[in-house]
Amino acid sequence: MQEPRRSERLAGKAIKTDASPPKLARKRKSQQKIESKGKICSSSSSVLPLLLGAHVSIGGGLHNAVHNAIEIGATAFGLFLRSQRQWQSKPLADETVDAFTRACVQHGFEGGRAILPHGSYLLNLGSPDESTLAKSRDALVEEMTRCERLGIGLYNFHPGSTCGKISIDECIRRIAESLNLALSKTRRVVAVIENMSGQGHTIGGDFREIRRVIDLVQDKSRVGVCLDTCHAFAAGYDISCARGYDEMMDDFQKFIGFEYLRGVHLNDSKAGVGSHLDRHENIGRGKIGREGFRRIVNDVRLRGIPMILETPMTMDDEDEILLLRSLVEDQ
């Protein structure tokens, strides 16, 4: 499973201050880019807005994620809610909650529907190991409770893996059981299952596996799906061409349904189609290519849904967002 590397590398750039907005970590690339952002953000199109952003750092405090998103011209963002390298974490302080919610209100992110947190990579909600399964379930409840307190309506996670020790059926049952447990202990927050690349023994490389999880979830109003472009490409959908993109979207509707689509991870792929390798690349520099992403940003079915970059730091988030916006044809 590939981590959104930008989050860890940006941590050193975060401004460690109180809840007031930090100074910009770097100057804008040019006045032309600033003007371009303004035109896009103020679009009067009757279509739902294009919500573009990146996975940003929480260094210096959760509230800095909001300021970091604004700095790169984002209208949506992803973040970790705590350290994703360890099971245990410090309780979420009231002061942290207040600072985050104030920043969201200040910058128009209140309501939390344009914010897509990423769950810990330690989670395996279908684990065959009872100890790992118990810790994963505890962490799921804890992170969804954080979302609830922070006013965030979505929580994205990788579903889990059989580890080659149990059947797919049993793993799917355990994932759904984990979700039912977490949903019974939290309120409002939607659990968003991410499609996978089919690497190893992971669940979710096939849309039908995700549908089977959803079928076992009791409260279907609180379950959704995040569509990762790199994962879908690696799983076998050649979204670099129109035919492959249409096939992916047709299958998503057929097996899952667009009513469950709550987020998109925008990642190009270093590996080829059907490789089952989760290797993210910057937009336009991988096997999917610019034309593949042109189709995505112009698909009106994806408007109003947070679309989050998780690409390598070899290209600035700001530049990738501008690149994606430049591909939009209805400006």
Rank of each mutant, 00 (worst) to 15 (best):
R187I: 12
G151Q: 04
V189C: 03
D169P: 07
E148V: 04
G198A: 05
G153M: 12
R188L: 10
V141W: 06
S178E: 01
T145N: 08
I193F: 11
E148T: 04
I172D: 00
L179I: 00
R188I: 10
Y155K: 06
I152W: 05
I193G: 02
K135F: 06
P128M: 06
A176P: 00
L133G: 05
S184F: 06
E142V: 07
A139G: 09
S197D: 08
V192G: 00
S197K: 07
A139K: 11
I166A: 14
S127M: 10
I152C: 03
S197R: 09
Q199L: 07
E194L: 01
A182D: 03
N180L: 05
L179R: 00
S161N: 10
L183A: 13
C163N: 14
S184M: 05
G204R: 01
S161L: 10
E142N: 12
S127W: 09
E142G: 06
A176Y: 03
G153R: 14
S197C: 03
I172H: 01
S131T: 12
G151D: 02
D138F: 07
T162C: 11
V190R: 08
T132S: 13
S184A: 14
R174M: 03
L181A: 08
E143L: 08
L179G: 00
I166H: 11
F157I: 09
K185R: 13
A134F: 08
D138V: 07
